[in-house]
């Protein structure tokens, strides 16, 4: 299929984009376009206008500032995957970016576009949750920072309000010695996550601390798994402890189901992947 008729607007600045968005409430912000354009082609989404923010190069950066890693919303997955700063300070993000879509998608798709779309099987949400990221958004007048936990509110939905766009993702620089990973069980056709598990932890004297475990793909939205975190936190990082903590995964969430993974199997996979992720960060 081909998209419906649409007006195209190339924004020159964030405020330009926002004022055009305000004047055209049916308009959609076009970042890399790798979520929006496929939906437009299948006519699942037919905005009257797209506002292309690709020219806003001031939204494309990866930097360390005030104890945070700051990533501009228009930074591509590919740029993140190849960032030496992130490889050193926040390898969870390079690891996650590296398994999003395919090379071509990573070259065009942006972190801001992906999280605004909030696909329940997308990879970024798990990583953002595990990393305690905040999402900086603006409507031109006000700028606010939303924690990832508050940002992802469910099935394809976020805390973004009408007239707001994402400008930056902020992640506190993990303490030295923190280990992190993103482990993904792929749907073999779409290559989205059936289960994606992001985990961060620090092991001091054999004891697990600061552990964060987050999932994508498992439920109608991404989530931090407090049960797993509580079960391993403060425990010694033995295989037995990890296994019993992982066995708590995805216990009290609604579970997605499709022909690749029904509820039972998906929950089982969440537990397998929790174990694999915890093993990677605790041992």
């Amino acid at each position: 299929m081909l998209p419906n008729t649409v007006d195209y607007y190339r924004a020159s600045s964030v405020s330009d984009a926002l004022s055009v968005l305000k004047a055209n409430p049916d308009a959609k912000i076009l970042a890399g376009g790798h979520s929006l354009i496929p939906a437009m082609k299948l006519r699942l989404n037919s905005p009257s206008m797209v506002i292309d923010i690709a020219n806003l190069s001031d939204l494309n950066y990866i930097k360390e500032e005030g104890g945070n890693i700051c990533i501009g919303a228009m930074t591509t997955h590919g740029q993140i995957a190849h960032s030496s700063l992130l490889a050193e300070k926040l390898p969870l993000f390079t690891e996650t970016a590296d398994v999003i879509g395919d090379v071509q998608v990573r070259n065009m798709g942006t972190i801001g576009g992906s999280i605004a779309h909030a696909d329940p099987s997308a990879d970024w949400p798990a990583a953002l949750l595990a990393a305690d990221a905040s999402i900086v958004v603006t409507n031109g007048d006000d700028t606010r920072s939303i924690s990832a936990v508050d940002f992802f509110v469910g099935f394809f939905s976020t805390a973004l309000e009408e007239g707001e766009i994402i400008t930056e993702i902020q992640v506190p620089v993990p303490a030295a010695g923190t280990k992190m990973t993103y482990q993904k069980f792929m749907q073999p056709a779409s290559r989205f996550a059936i289960v994606g598990c992001a985990a961060m932890a620090k092991v001091e004297n054999g004891v697990v601390a600061d552990v964060k475990v987050a999932f994508t793909g498992v439920s109608d939205g991404p989530f931090r798994d407090g049960n797993v975190e509580a079960a391993i936190s403060g425990k010694t990082a033995t295989a037995e402890n990890i296994a019993s903590a992982a066995a708590q995964a995805a216990s009290d969430v609604s579970l997605n189901a499709d022909h690749y993974a029904d509820e039972d199997y998906r929950q089982h996979l969440a537990r397998v992947y929790a174990k694999r992720a915890l093993t990677a960060v605790c041992r």
């Binding site: 376009g33 354009i37 082609k41 292309d52 090379v103 998608v105 070259n107």
Partner: peptide, 9 residues
């Protein structure tokens, strides 16, 4: 850089 020309305007 390689991109999919069906997925951009």
């Amino acid at each position: 850089k390689a991109v999919k020309s069906c997925s951009m305007l």
